[in-house]
Design a protein around this nucleic acid. Structure first.
Lengths: 149, 149
DNA sequence: TCCATTTACATAGGAACCTATATATATAAA
DNA sequence: TTTATATATATAGGTTCCTATGTAAATGGA
């Protein structure tokens, strides 16, 4: 690839990740809105789907966001009645976060929306192609995360 | 894929896009910081790299962000001396935006950083694999953008 | 020409991400 | 036990994205 292509985003994978990620977030937000969910909250819903009680720290690690990001998101989710916090009896610094009953009741509908989105996103790709894609993505992700130090 | 995997993000491509995109943004921001550039500004730098003068509207379209997003980014870039605006003589509603001389002078260094990042991101992938990846990404992007209506 | 519509941009407000830093509790070492 | 360090969370401030809406200039039809 000659130098003149360095600025041509269409020749590089990097360009696509941002566009796809933003697109998926926008679509997810629209489709989940009637349930009161947002795309960014999905890791929290996933982690707590079986009634688990986790600390903010554990949720941040699971969702791979920084602690203040998770703190803010949990505040909004609590404000909106999606989660509840109870003081951790074993650690006065910490709270245990869990989904409210109303949220638990809405999870199956959320799951159906996700399944539908995953299927539309890979429309026209064979099972083999999806596997190839996931495996390449996994390798790129590993490279990217090894660049962050 | 059985139902119990609907919540398992590792089985779906969707999960990876967000993580990769955020990782690339963080790394780019760190590596470009000494030049005064940010990852999100790259489309603007790219569009104006040869001294072109474009309107805010054209830049938003090029970068595929909404107009207020571009307006805000250009404000910061102008504040930081990266771009300049001159009134469009043909349309009093509009300004023409171009890179400052200082920014133009820093572009080659920025390009080298991008090239390096693109190469690290795909480390271990063969040329064929990169081509396959880009082609699959293109198809997914097309699917995603067709979901947004 | 005059008015309605469209267009370009600005502004307001909010979500989700980040880094840096403060505070309170827990833990470990002296 | 007292003190130093580590950990969990909170807060402050900033960027990048979004939607909704306002304003002024351009345009096109009556």
């Amino acid at each position: 690839m000659d130098n003149s292509d360095d600025w041509n985003p269409l020749r590089h994978p990097g360009h696509y990740f941002n566009r796809i990620a933003r697109g998926l977030t926008r679509i997810g937000d629209i489709r989940l809105r009637h349930l009161g969910f947002a795309t960014a909250q999905l890791p929290v819903l996933t982690a707590l789907k079986d009634g688990a009680e986790l600390s903010q720290k554990e949720l941040a690690k699971w969702a791979r966001v920084e602690q203040p990001t998770m703190a803010q998101m949990l505040s909004r989710m609590e404000r909106d009645g999606l989660v509840q916090r109870v003081p951790d009896p074993e650690d006065k610094r910490s709270s245990l976060i869990s989904l409210t009953d109303a949220t638990l009741a809405k999870l199956p509908a959320g799951r159906a929306i996700l399944r539908q989105g995953n299927s539309e996103m890979t429309k026209g790709l064979t099972g083999d192609e999806i596997e190839t894609l996931v495996s390449l993505l996994r390798r790129v992700l590993e490279n990217v995360e090894s660049m962050e130090s």
